[in-house]
Simulated assay, not measured.
Amino acid sequence: MQILVVGSGAREHALCWKLSRDPGVRRVVCAPGNDGIGGHFSTIPVDAADPEAVLTLAEQHRIDLTVIGPEAPLAGGIADLFSARGRPIFGPRRRAAQLETSKAFAKDFLQRHRVPTARYRVCGDAESAVRAIRSGEFGDSLVVKADGLAGGKGVVVADTRAEAEAAIQVLMVDRAFGDAGSRIVLEERLYGPEVSFFVIADGEHAVPLVAAQDHKRIFDDDHGPNTGGMGAFAPSPLVDDAMRDRILGEVVRPVLYGLIIEGSPYRGVLYCGLMLTADGPQVIEFN
């Protein structure tokens, strides 16, 4: 089997390494890759966000399976295109991928399917967002999220309403992350430890992987703005067998079933960012 891994980061390097160790795999190619990956595997220049270009590459190199790492190709519909052309691909189609690519879509979806998550409001302009903050609907401390993809930096955990309003200025007025801030999600702030829970899904069934703890704040002692990640470790001691089963029952299975009945089965890795609150696990986001 020949496998194409799409992406250019450490995640893709790890995927190449692991996939290459399977006895049924004779070649792993990464596109576009990076210098580190290129020291061990073949790399091919390509615009990963251009589904047609990636499809052409897969056809030219007689790729048996394409594995997508980053979110941008999924948002661009690469899985839809490959599936339409009958080429095997590992990664969700565009609508299912909206769980990650649109915070507003994810929150509305969770509400429709009664999956535990924080109270929220979606705002399409800065004025309505500021009014919602000043109303005190979410208290003095709340969370402000850019709707679209922002490299893990579009979430602000505001300790005061003034900080939340400043985040609206940055996201919606200054457009620090471009169109990702055209809409924002305001959420009540949840309290408890965070865990990252992963499953491999085939559309209906889910196989859980090792849970992790991902630390996003830029400074020590969980201070400062969020980043794309300052470090992580696994397995998480917070997810024992009982908690794993609870997350599968209360979060993962309802999400997969909801996508089935909405006509968008999820195939790929589903990464559930969770807060373990006093009331149980609640979804913060999907990655």
Rank of each mutant, 00 (worst) to 15 (best):
R119P: 15
R87W: 11
A96Y: 08
S83P: 12
V130N: 08
M172D: 02
E165N: 08
G136T: 09
S182M: 09
F105C: 05
A79W: 04
E59P: 04
Q98C: 10
I63F: 12
R85T: 05
K145A: 14
I68M: 07
L55R: 09
R62F: 05
A150V: 02
L57H: 05
I68R: 06
A96E: 05
S182W: 10
E137L: 02
L149P: 09
M172L: 06
E127C: 10
V144M: 15
L65P: 03
H113W: 10
A166F: 07
I89S: 06
A72V: 15
T160D: 00
A180Y: 03
D140F: 03
V170L: 06
L99K: 07
T56H: 14
G148N: 15
A162P: 06
V115A: 08
I68A: 12
S102P: 05
L110M: 01
Q169P: 12
L99Q: 12
D108W: 04
R183D: 02
R175A: 01
G181M: 02
H61K: 10
G91L: 06
M172W: 01
E127G: 07
V173N: 07
R112H: 11
R95I: 07
V156N: 04
R87D: 13
F109G: 14
G77F: 10
E127V: 10
R119Q: 13
A129C: 13
A118C: 03
A164M: 12
V115P: 15
E71C: 13
A129I: 02
G77P: 05
F90D: 03
S128N: 07
A176Y: 07
F177Q: 13
K103N: 01
A150K: 01
E59C: 03
G136R: 01
L171G: 04
A79G: 05
A96M: 00
A49M: 07
Q169C: 09
D64E: 14
E165T: 03
C123Q: 08
L65C: 12
Q111K: 12
S83V: 11
Y120M: 00
P70I: 11
R114I: 08
R94S: 15
V115Y: 09
K145Y: 01
R95L: 11
A150M: 04
A162C: 05
L110F: 14
S128I: 11
T117Q: 04
K153I: 00
R121P: 06
G136Q: 11
V170H: 13
A96N: 00
A75R: 06
R112I: 13
R134C: 05
R175W: 04
V173E: 11
D50T: 13
A49E: 09
K153S: 02
R87A: 15
R161C: 00
I78Y: 08
G139E: 00
K107Y: 14
D159R: 12
G139Q: 00
Q111R: 10
L149K: 04
S182K: 08
G151K: 01
P116M: 13
R131G: 14
D125Y: 08
F177L: 10
